[in-house]
């Protein structure tokens, strides 16, 4: 009974947890399911009953291709399931890096240490005018990042750093609000230094908010990576020589954004490729947002007159 009541009261939270568990199941157990082809076999041709060869991409609803295949004839469902681990890893990495930098930054800005708060204001003012995606595009196309074997590392850093100001600002607002509460004074009176104050007086009250922010940011990062994929910017890519004096950026990964590489053309030819890869992203973003909202509702206990 109590469980049923908990589920009823926190429907969003439970729904979010179920969705996330589903996602994790697909990511970690999925590759070993019988339906999934771990080898990602490339099929050159399928033969029709009249012995006419059909080249890939194969349409969905074919026996072996539940949701179709990609241009190399690999089963799309297997590709998505196998690529989930890499995709999620990149997204989590970016978010972690962002918050590892944002939290100290927020604390310094809150303390107005060495003009950090001014810098933060400037950064946010700038980014409230210029779309993040353009900023990322302008920076990743710079030579030092384009022409290095550590390009994935740089890309993770750049995507994390571009929005670090926004994340830090949100955390700073929380800190500002907490520091105006009276119990903080009791800590000061008791003689706590700034580190002790931060650890025992601030952190316990912003853990919840931090988790909500981070989960929401996971969704935002996934969204940004998806958008970047349409322009042809991927986290895992490197530069190779393709012809005399010709260079091209090549990709060597099976993560979801990679399937959106030719989306503009695929929408007209083989719409199931961009559709299902965008669906995988949309599903992830959706479950993360539901979970974040569910956690947020846990803390929300307000009095009301209406």
């Amino acid at each position: 009974m109590r469980l049923a009541k908990f589920v009823k009261d926190n429907f969003l939270l439970c729904f979010g947890v179920v969705l996330i568990l589903l996602l994790l199941f697909v990511t970690f157990v999925g590759p070993y399911l019988p339906l999934i082809d771990q080898e990602l076999e490339e099929v050159q041709y399928l033969w029709t009953e009249d012995d006419i060869p059909i080249p890939p991409p194969f349409e969905p609803s074919n026996e072996n291709y539940l949701i179709g295949s990609d241009h190399a004839g690999r089963d799309l469902l297997s590709l998505l399931v196998m690529g989930a681990k890499e995709t999620l890893l990149v997204v989590i990495l970016i978010t972690l890096v962002r918050y590892i930098i944002a939290i100290p930054l927020a604390f310094f800005a809150h303390k107005k240490w060495l003009g950090t708060h001014l810098m933060l204001n400037w950064l946010n003012g700038f980014l409230s005018y210029i779309p993040t995606i353009l900023m990322v595009l302008l920076i990743v196309m710079l030579p030092p990042f384009l022409f290095t074997e550590f390009r994935p590392v740089y890309l993770v850093l750049i995507i994390a750093l571009v929005e670090v100001g926004r994340a830090a600002d949100a955390v700073k607002l929380e800190l500002d609000e907490i520091s105006s509460k009276e119990y903080i004074l009791s800590g000061v009176v008791a003689g706590a230094g700034s580190f002790r104050l931060f650890k025992y007086y601030f952190l316990p009250f912003i853990y919840g908010k931090l988790i909500v922010y981070m989960i929401t940011d996971l969704g935002k990062v996934m969204f940004l990576i998806g958008q970047l994929a349409f322009i042809g910017v991927f986290v895992s890519q490197y530069l190779i020589q393709v012809d005399a004096g010709q260079f091209a950026i090549r990709n060597s990964s099976i993560s979801w954004p990679m399937l959106l590489m030719n989306a503009t053309r695929d929408i007209r030819m083989a719409i199931w490729i961009p559709f299902w890869s965008a669906f995988a992203m949309a599903f992830t973003i959706f479950s993360l947002n539901i979970l974040a909202q569910g956690i947020q509702n846990l803390f929300k206990k307000r009095n009301t007159y209406i």
Partner: peptide, 14 residues
């Protein structure tokens, strides 16, 4: 909530 969580590119393709 559903629509706030759906990326616009997915919506377009859908």
């Amino acid at each position: 909530w559903v629509f706030a969580s759906i990326p616009d590119f997915f919506l377009f393709i859908a």
